[in-house]
Amino acid sequence: MSSSRSRPDRIDRRKVHGTQAEIRLCDSYAHPSYEKRIEIEHGSDEWIFGIDDDDTASVMSPDVDGVEVPEWIERSFRSLGVEVDDA
């Protein structure tokens, strides 16, 4: 993860498909468009999501068009009442 990440309020670690995943939630995230930030590391893959006040997650990083969010991440977010923005 980049050195610009926020200090997480919570950290969760679990195995996903046999590989350790670390999920960091930053509840107090200072960003004009997002109330929270979720950082996920899984093997060599990394994602950063911004969560807006409508509980919608948007991919902030990797900063590429058409990044595919793995189904296990979408399921995890939905279980928390957060939808992933596919745009």
Rank of each mutant, 00 (worst) to 15 (best):
P62D: 00
I48W: 04
F49S: 02
S2T: 12
K36V: 01
P8R: 05
I48N: 12
R7T: 05
V82W: 04
H42K: 14
D86A: 09
R75G: 03
G50C: 01
D85Y: 11
H31Y: 02
L25Q: 05
V64P: 00
H42W: 15
E74R: 01
Q20H: 11
T19R: 10
G81I: 02
G18N: 04
M1E: 03
V64D: 05
E83Y: 01
P32Y: 15
L25R: 10
E22K: 10
P8Y: 02
R37W: 10
I23R: 13
G18R: 04
H42S: 15
E41C: 13
P62V: 01
I40Q: 00
H17C: 08
P62E: 00
S3P: 06
S79D: 11
G43E: 01
S6G: 03
P8S: 06
A21Q: 07
E41L: 13
E22F: 08
D54C: 04
D12L: 15
S44W: 06
D52A: 14
G81T: 08
H31L: 08
E39T: 08
P62Q: 00
G81W: 09
I38W: 07
Y29E: 05
K36L: 09
D53T: 14
A21G: 10
T56K: 14
I23L: 14
E68M: 08
H17K: 11
M60W: 07
S33P: 08
D53S: 15
D54W: 04
S61K: 05
V59Y: 00
D65R: 08
V69F: 01
V67L: 05
M60H: 06
D63A: 11
S4G: 03
V59M: 03
S3D: 14
D63F: 07
F77N: 00
D53F: 14
I40K: 03
E74D: 00
R5D: 01
H17N: 15
V69N: 01
H42R: 15
H31D: 12
C26D: 09
R14F: 11
D45H: 13
S33K: 14
H42A: 14
R5T: 08
E46I: 00
R10T: 13
A30F: 09
K15G: 06
H31V: 03
F77Y: 07
R78K: 07
I11H: 13
Y34W: 03
V82M: 01
G81S: 03
S28F: 06
E35T: 08
V84I: 06
D63G: 07
V84Q: 05
S33L: 12
V59C: 09
D85V: 09
E83W: 01
P8T: 02
R7Q: 06
V69D: 05
Q20A: 12
D85C: 14
D65T: 12
W47P: 01
R75S: 08
H17R: 10
D45V: 06
E41G: 13
H42L: 15
D85S: 14
E74N: 02
S4Q: 05
D52M: 10
D12Q: 14
S6P: 04
M1T: 03
R14Y: 06
P8H: 06
L25F: 10
L25G: 00
A21E: 04
D86S: 06
Y34Q: 04
V64N: 00
T19W: 04
E83G: 03
I48L: 11
K15D: 11
T56A: 11
